[in-house]
Structure formats: C-alpha cells, structure tokens
Amino acid sequence: MALDARAQHLLKQLIEQHIASGVPVGSRQLARDSGLQISAATVRNVLADLEDEGLLMAPHTSAGRVPTRAGYRFFVDSLLQTLPVAPEARRLVLRHIGEHIPDTDEVLHAATEVLSQLTRMAGFVRVPRRATRILRHVDFLALREREVLAIFVTDRGDVENRLIRVEQALDQGQLAQAANYFNATYGGRPLQDILWQLQRDLQDNRDELDRILRNAMELGEEMLDADAERILIEGELQLLDLPDFADNERLRELLQAVRRKRDLVHLLDQSVRGSDVRLFIGEESGYAPLADCSVVAAPYSVDGEVVGVIGVIGPMRMPYHEIIPLVDGTARALGKALSSELPGHP
C-alpha cells in the first residue's frame, strides 16, 4: 500500500489523537493540529482516500474517523516511533522482579503483575516450557479421593508438582504400578515427545490397555498437558476501567477468553518462535473474542534458550509507542532474573 508523505502524516496524527482521546477525530481538528498549511476540506479529501483504502472508518454517530484494524497495522509497521522505557518504569520492573529471585514462580508472577500495572492492561506470561527437557522420573501420590499428586523430575533437576483429578479413586499400590510402568516406558525421553506418544497410544490402543497401563498413560497425559498450557494472568479486571470495553457483553467474552487459558496457548506459542516483539491486532489473533483487542508479546530466554513469552492484552486503541518497549524490556529483565543474572536491586 503506497501512501504519499502527506497522507502518512495525517494518518499518523489521526491515530495518535484517537489513541490519546478515545473519540473520533474530525478533519477540522486534524487540519488545525497537523502542522501542515492545508485546509479542512483538503484534509477531508485525504481522509476519504484513506477510508477507501480501508485504513479508516467513520462511526455512524460522528462525522470524525477512527482507525480500522488495517489502519493500526499500517501505523505500527510503517509510522510508529517507539520511546525508550522511562527510567522510573525500568527501575520499578527491576525492583519488582529482583525482590523475588530465586523463586521462579514468584518472579513470573511479579513480572506479569508489574507489566499489567505499568500498562493498565491485562498481563500474561507463558510459564517456561520444558518441551525439550528429558524426563528422569515420575511419582504418583494419592491425596484425597480422586485426587493424585504427580511429581516429575527432569534431566536438569527441575522438580514439578501437578494436582490431577481422576474419574475413579486409585489406591497407592495402583499409583505405584502406574509410575513404574510410566518410567520404564517413557523415561529418558523429551517431555513433548512423551506427550505426543501418549496421545497416540491412548487413541490407538485405549480399548486393549489393562487398567494399570491406562492409568499410567492417562495420568501422564494429564500431567504433561497441564505443564504445556501453564499461563499466568494478572490484572484482567483493569480492562473494566477502559471505555473501549463499555459494552458488557464484549467485555464478558473477552474475560472468558482470557480465563480459558488453553485458547491462548497456540497464539502465544507463535511468539516463542521468534526473538522480537510480536503484535496481533484484532482478527490477526484468530480468536473471535479478541477481535477488538491487541496482543503484544515478547519471548524471554533463560541461559540462551527461549522458554516462554510475556505480554499484555488490551484494546486496539493502546499506546503502542510505550507498550511495545515496556513488554520488550520486561521480557529481557525476566529472562535475566530466571538466569540469575539480574541484580536484586538497581
């Protein structure tokens, strides 16, 4: 899409004004504030052309215009100038995260919380994935009726616990047999390979498996599937304060989507594959409840390996110039904290 310099300037001004005010921007106001020596009529003609290009739209209730999803995408890709993270915000991030080293879960919660606080959006973090880690050992322990504690240890010494609810009660003897079978069959293999194999084995042989084998495989699948989908969410209720979500039905659908963490996994995993900040604007996410939202996400690395992603969910009308560097900076700080490189206090 080729726009001349004047059209780009007016589009940038309009989007920045709309992000700041939340209301449609009219041609008279834009002509006055643009810094160009042009009339409101000329601005109106340019805006009409931008509307024809699908970059702007005119709400029925106003003579002004607002950006479309395509308009925001053009703005972010071609016109946006990001700002360095403010020193005060950077110090807050480092302090908030650094206070919780070396507790991994607390560091993750702190990073998500401070990012949500600074952006006033819903913050999320994809808990470090251990797909490439090798399973060393599994134990299943009976807790209350129909509740099992799964404990697995990886080749790097990571110990993880998962609470699993089962359809029928299993005694400790049955759980020990299941753990022995699971370790003998799947031990020494990457966790993601085990999950894929479990899913295939259960699908192909479910009717032929005896109870011990089926218990072991179903418990293992539950354990690893839960690990693959761990996402922490902080500050989703801050979305209540944004005028963009004044429609209660839209907000309800969004909050439900945020809480259904499984639906976000595929989207966030797309961000893990790269090294840069990723933006999903409106329908780009592929999920209907996020059609009016933007997701800004950045991967974080531990000891040189990308293990997760952190970011925010908010309205398309967000200050990208501030939020993109905040998300990127928080991801870098989080990675250093988990690698034990971040000082406890700045």
Rank of each mutant, 00 (worst) to 15 (best):
V125K: 05
A31C: 07
Q29R: 10
E99R: 15
Q192G: 11
L36A: 02
P299M: 01
I151H: 06
V296S: 06
N248E: 12
D227Q: 15
Q172D: 09
D193W: 07
R230C: 06
P24F: 00
V272S: 08
G173T: 05
G54N: 02
T132P: 09
L149C: 10
R136S: 14
S78I: 05
E234L: 13
F152H: 10
Y72C: 02
C293Q: 05
A150V: 09
E160Q: 14
V43C: 03
V93N: 07
E283C: 03
K261I: 12
V46Y: 01
A297E: 01
A297M: 05
E88R: 15
L326C: 15
V125W: 02
A288N: 01
L143F: 07
V25L: 05
N215H: 04
V159Y: 00
A337Y: 06
H18I: 00
A40R: 05
T330I: 14
M57I: 06
G235P: 14
V25R: 02
R206D: 13
E51I: 08
E218L: 15
D49F: 10
L11T: 06
H321W: 10
L3K: 00
E253T: 05
L94R: 03
A63N: 05
R136E: 04
I194C: 07
A178L: 06
L149E: 08
Q199P: 03
L135I: 10
P67T: 00
K336W: 10
L232I: 15
A228P: 09
I323D: 00
Q256D: 04
E106L: 13
I134F: 12
M217V: 08
Q37P: 10
E113Q: 15
L108W: 06
R129W: 06
V307N: 04
Q270R: 15
V265A: 06
R129A: 08
R91G: 15
E145S: 06
H60V: 10
R136N: 13
R126I: 01
D49W: 07
L55N: 00
V93A: 12
P346C: 01
L170H: 11
L251W: 04
T119P: 09
A291R: 15
I323P: 02
V277H: 07
I281H: 01
R32L: 11
G98P: 14
R6N: 10
R130W: 04
R252P: 12
L264R: 13
V258I: 15
P299F: 02
S294M: 09
L175H: 11
A110D: 10
E145H: 08
I313D: 00
D227N: 10
V85Y: 02
A169K: 11
Q192E: 11
V46Q: 02
A298E: 05
A291N: 08
L240R: 09
S271G: 15
P84M: 04
A226R: 14
V43M: 02
R136Q: 12
L224I: 11
G22W: 08
L209K: 07
V107A: 07
S301I: 14
N248Q: 13
R206V: 11
L108S: 03
L254K: 06
G22T: 03
R144D: 10
S285K: 03
S285E: 00
L195M: 09
S294K: 01
F245N: 02
D201P: 13
L342F: 08
G235S: 08
C293P: 04
F245P: 01
Y287K: 07
A131M: 14
S301M: 13
L264C: 06
R6C: 08
F140V: 05
R259M: 09
I101T: 12
R73Y: 01
K336S: 08
L268Y: 04
Q270N: 08
